[in-house]
């Protein structure tokens, strides 16, 4: 973990109290975001997002599967996070599993909505090919390559970027399958469908250090946190998910206050992210 002396701890806490953090940012400023799409050619869509020194890769793979009997009109999406040992030696062996699971669950809460699929950022009914019989299963795999705080926000951004980059092959279904028969399908290798990613929320984590809260904390700042609240917000300003981590309790008033701050910050983040994704996609098309 991060080894800090008492002096350094005071320096970080004092800086946050004075709205000038150790890297010169204000409390509500993000580090520069860098997005690169299409980094894994074997996947249907992929992206690498760097948020300061935090570096994550996300890939989307689509496989044909069978929808669950409870929701015959919806496809399935699974999010899995893996913490690479390159990010920190403590992830060696099974060391990264706990964090990986925590992050996977948090992302599922923030991006996929309720169990019924209502309120999901991804339109699950667009994944259906033949109702009750064939649907696309989306496997979203994320890999943490370098860790310097604020993983959840980076992962959320990487998933959004990877989904913007994703092309799902168009499927032609052979007519004539009756009853319980599994219809024959023909997967097109030339035609691809793009996702509508405008509704996918971004995640903004507010980390509370002392009496104040900050966005986009680095590892050093995270080591000083008393609690953190991750809120996912979509373009319309709707709150899609909320997770509180860390031990210390929070005043309900502060949580409401945080929400209004997040609403404001997320607008900037969405715009910044969208322009980065567009720039990366345009760059990929040119070359």
């Amino acid at each position: 973990m991060v080894g800090l002396s008492l002096g350094e701890e005071h320096f970080i806490q004092g800086g946050i109290a004075q709205d000038l953090r150790s890297d010169g940012r204000k409390r509500l400023t993000y580090r520069p975001i860098y997005v690169e799409t299409g980094v894994i050619p074997q996947a249907n869509g992929s992206a690498r997002v760097m948020l300061g020194k935090t570096d994550v890769v996300s890939s989307v793979k689509a496989e044909l599967g069978k929808p669950s009997s409870l929701q015959p009109d919806k496809g399935k999406v699974a999010i899995h996070v893996d913490c690479s040992t390159t990010a920190a030696p403590m992830f060696e062996g099974r060391g990264g599993e706990e964090l990986s699971t925590e992050l996977s669950v948090a992302l599922q809460h923030c991006l996929l909505g309720a169990k019924s699929g209502a309120g999901a950022g991804i339109d699950l009914s667009s994944l259906i090919v033949v109702e009750g019989k064939i649907c696309w299963d989306l496997y979203i795999d994320c890999l943490v390559v370098c860790l310097d705080g604020n993983l959840l926000d980076a992962l959320g951004a990487a998933i959004k970027a990877a989904l913007s980059n994703t092309g799902i092959p168009r499927v032609h279904v052979a007519a004539g399958a009756l009853g319980d028969e599994q219809p024959e399908v023909d997967i097109s290798e030339e035609e691809f469908l793009q996702f509508d990613t405008s509704d996918i929320p971004v995640i903004v984590t507010l980390t509370k250090v002392g009496r104040h809260y900050i966005v986009d904390a680095t590892s050093e700042e995270e080591s000083q946190m008393s609690s953190a609240v991750s809120i996912s917000v979509n373009r319309k300003g709707h709150i899609c998910g909320l997770i509180k981590r860390g031990g210390a309790g929070l005043d309900p008033g502060i949580i409401l206050d945080m929400m209004s701050v997040v609403k404001h910050v997320s607008e900037q983040l969405i715009n910044k992210l969208d322009s980065e994704i567009a720039a990366s996609e345009a760059g990929a098309e040119e070359s």
Partner: peptide
Amino acid sequence: EYSMANFSTGDRMRKPK
């Protein structure tokens, strides 16, 4: 330590570390 990402192979891997 050598590890392979889930998405590294053509088909998605579900093997543990």
